[in-house]
């Protein structure tokens, strides 16, 4: 099997170098949005004197870590021209399953974590397997998983929350190490691992290759099916991570948790420059996209903007941000 892969690798190299133009636009994408994020931060700092404080900035990153982690998985999926609508429901399923094993003095901490991560991974692998083997559109398969996972979460708990969690489990979402909240640390670690996966490994090359031209990748010898299963499995795993953090943060497993998180995650990826047409996207961009959403949510709350206006403004800002970005790309 290893010899097969190395042959593929050689064929890949010529293909990847020809897409260096894409790489340039990817970098532009990233910095364009960074500029918008900085502009938003400056604007909010002027409007609200309490916005630009260490406490509040940590607050924003911590709040966005759950959606941000999901968005990283979704980004990789979108790069392969796929989509994952099941993240929010998987979070709920993971939430109630992990919480059920996280009561004080029952199981060691590793058990709820393993169950949560395992379940997330499983849902992702099921998504990926059906998408690649049965050739059903990702939109449909993950829509099915979105419904089924939510149903399973409700079934397990009879629609009720699961409380009474151990202190060690609560530490994941509520604790801090050296003044940095644990969710932010996990967010950072997930971001770093995903960055390396996408930029420094064969896996990453193949992901971009599949997104750029699936047919060509297949002809070049990439086992497209297997990599798709990896990609959806990884997205599922990250939903599992997010589900565990969320559960720990709110001290309860909630079958109704995570509603619409998949859309926030997709929005973060797209704001961050990921192209829904596939082949383009970067972890850094997605993290910036998530932070833009976080800064907006936080800033509008600080300014006590009416909830009705908040929704309108968020919609406008998301659309305008992506519009500016696409204009800039066209010019370059």
């Amino acid at each position: 099997m290893s010899s097969q892969v190395s042959v593929v690798d050689k064929r890949e190299k010529s293909k990847v170098s020809s897409s260096s133009k894409e790489k340039v636009s990817r970098i532009l994408n990233r910095y364009g949005m960074l500029f918008i994020l900085i502009a938003l931060i400056i604007l909010m700092s002027i409007l609200s004197p309490t916005f630009f404080t260490t406490g509040n900035l940590l607050n924003i990153v911590r709040q966005m870590s759950v959606v941000g982690i999901v968005a990283i998985g979704v980004t990789i999926v979108i790069i392969t021209t796929g989509i994952d609508l099941s993240s929010g429901s998987v979070i709920a399923l993971v939430s109630v399953a992990a919480a059920s094993f996280a009561h004080p003095d029952t199981y060691p901490l590793i058990v709820p974590i393993a169950i949560g991560l395992g379940l997330g991974l499983l849902t992702g692998v099921i998504n990926g397997t059906i998408i690649s083997k049965a050739k059903i559109a990702p939109f449909i398969v993950t829509l099915g998983m979105m419904t089924a996972a939510r149903g399973a979460a409700l079934l397990i708990t009879d629609g009720r929350p699961v409380g009474n969690l151990s202190d060690s489990f609560k530490f994941i979402g509520q604790g801090s190490v050296l003044g940095i909240p644990v969710p932010i640390i996990i967010f950072g670690v997930v971001g770093l691992i995903s960055y390396i996966l996408l930029n420094k490994t064969k896996f990453g090359k193949y992901v971009y290759a599949i997104g750029g031209n699936e047919q060509a990748a297949m002809i070049a010898g990439v086992n497209v099916d297997r990599y798709k299963i990896f990609v959806y499995g990884y997205a599922g795993l990250l939903s599992g991570v997010a589900g565990i953090i969320l559960t720990s943060r709110i001290s309860s497993g909630q079958p109704t948790a995570g509603v619409m998180y998949e859309l926030d995650a997709i929005a973060a990826a797209v704001i961050g420059g990921t192209s829904l047409a596939g082949g383009i996207g970067a972890i850094g961009g997605t993290i910036i996209g998530a932070l833009i959403i976080g800064v907006m949510n936080n800033g509008l709350d600080l300014l006590n903007v009416s909830p009705y206006w908040q929704q309108i403004l968020k919609g406008v800002i998301i659309t305008v941000a992506v519009f500016i970005d696409s204009r800039k790309n066209r010019k370059s």
């Binding site: 609200s48 004197p49 309490t50 916005f51 404080t53 406490g55 509040n56 607050n59 709040q63 759950v66 969320l246 943060r249 709110i250 309860s252 909630q254 109704t256 948790a257 509603v259 949510n297 936080n298 709350d301 600080l302 006590n304 009416s306 909830p307 908040q310």
Partner: peptide, 25 residues
């Protein structure tokens, strides 16, 4: 009434909104 916002009936969102309000000073 000094502050008014929505957390869409949700615990996690209520927590986020309160954190933001606390930051408002």
């Amino acid at each position: 009434v000094v502050l008014e916002g929505t957390a869409e009936w949700d615990r996690a969102k209520g927590m986020t909104l309160m954190e933001n309000w606390l930051q408002s000073g």
